[in-house]
């Protein structure tokens, strides 16, 4: 297992290096952030001074080597825009994004699995048909539109929930999050639902498909023949076996939620990392873009690792060391 983890980490280092090189050159090719950052009133000398101050007057390979040197010491450079370490700028916005992702995944699990299970066990009931029809909507409606509709209906027309922004935060056990306050939860409900909609539909479909397939398998019949209660057959034998694809997908989806919930964060003015990323791309804030993607790559590596470990718990036949990852 240790060898497996080490191998994974080494692969991820390679990915980080290649990715940083691509992003570095890519952003360089797109353009020079100075013209976006500088006051239009500035003259030629000011523009040159600003370019020098950001180190953009050097050849690109030199800038990259300088970046690598810093990165080896744990310094990913200063944001062009905020003038503060890129890592700090990102970490500052991380809690807001993480709590939103957690809330969305929780919704997906709590709503998706029971609904999917129901639809799988009673495929012909009208309720199941209703669930499946709704899940198609969840897939096909664009997040942007759904977000605006949620705001229009629940905030503007009904006035039940706040339209945008993050609510009050509270600190408990050293974690500061808006999950602990009523105001925070109210603010979170709409954006989390907007993010979760697609994930709920996904989980419903996966669970349903798994349940439909597994219900006819011998081990379920055997369990029933043994006289086990329906609850135990479904809740343990069936569920445990159909969860593997669900866990894989949820793991990756969680990564996606953390990394790229750009649209939802923008519409709901959620002070998270996704909005930072899109802002940084628009203003060509290269240090933040590179640092962000490095963090995301590492995060996906960790998530995949956790998913693999969860596999081995759900299915004892899986041996981590033997996987070719």
């Amino acid at each position: 297992m240790t060898a497996f983890i080490i191998r994974r980490l080494m692969q991820s280092v390679l990915v980080v290096v290649v990715m940083s090189l691509i992003v570095f050159c890519g952003v360089h090719l797109v353009g020079d952030p100075v013209y976006l950052l500088i006051n239009p009133q500035a003259d030629q000398k000011d523009i040159e001074a600003a370019i020098r101050a950001l180190g953009l007057d050097r050849p690109i390979w030199e800038q990259y080597l300088y970046f690598v040197g810093g990165a080896l010491r744990g310094d990913l450079g200063n944001s062009f825009i905020f003038g503060e370490p890129a890592l700090k700028v990102i970490v500052q916005r991380m809690p807001a994004t993480l709590e939103l992702a957690f809330a969305a995944i929780a919704m997906a699990i709590v709503l998706g699995i029971p609904l999917g299970l129901y639809a799988g066990l009673y495929p012909t009931s009208p309720v199941s048909r209703g669930i499946m029809a709704t899940s198609i909507l969840g897939f096909s409606l664009p997040t942007f539109w759904v977000g605006l509709m949620l705001i229009m209906v629940f905030a503007v027309m009904l006035g039940w929930l706040p339209s945008t922004g993050r609510g009050q935060t509270a600190t408990f056990l050293g974690i500061t999050t808006s999950l602990f306050t009523l105001d925070g939860l109210k603010h979170m409900l709409l954006p989390a639902l907007n993010l979760a909609l697609l994930k709920i539909s996904l989980v419903i479909r996966l669970t349903r498909a798994g349940a439909r397939e597994a219900i006819h398998q011998d081990y379920i019949k055997f369990a029933r023949a043994k006289g086990l209660s329906n609850r135990r057959v479904i809740g343990v034998h069936l569920l445990k076996n159909i969860l593997i694809p669900v866990v894989t997908v949820l793991g990756l989806e969680f990564g996606n939620l953390v990394a790229f919930s750009v649209v939802t964060e923008t519409i709901f003015a959620w002070p998270g990392m996704g909005r930072l990323l899109i802002g940084s791309i628009q203003s060509l804030d290269r240090p933040v873009i590179v640092a962000y993607l490095i963090i995301i790559v590492l995060m996906f590596v960790v998530i995949n690792l956790l998913v693999d470990i969860l596999y081995s718990i759900l299915d004892p036949r899986v041996r981590l060391g033997e996987q070719s990852a």
Partner: peptide, 18 residues
């Protein structure tokens, strides 16, 4: 002051009284 970059969201926030 709250930055709400998306135009429609800014209008919605005003209409919702936020």
């Amino acid at each position: 002051f709250r930055p709400i970059k998306a135009g429609p969201a800014r209008v919605a926030a005003l209409l919702a009284g936020d």
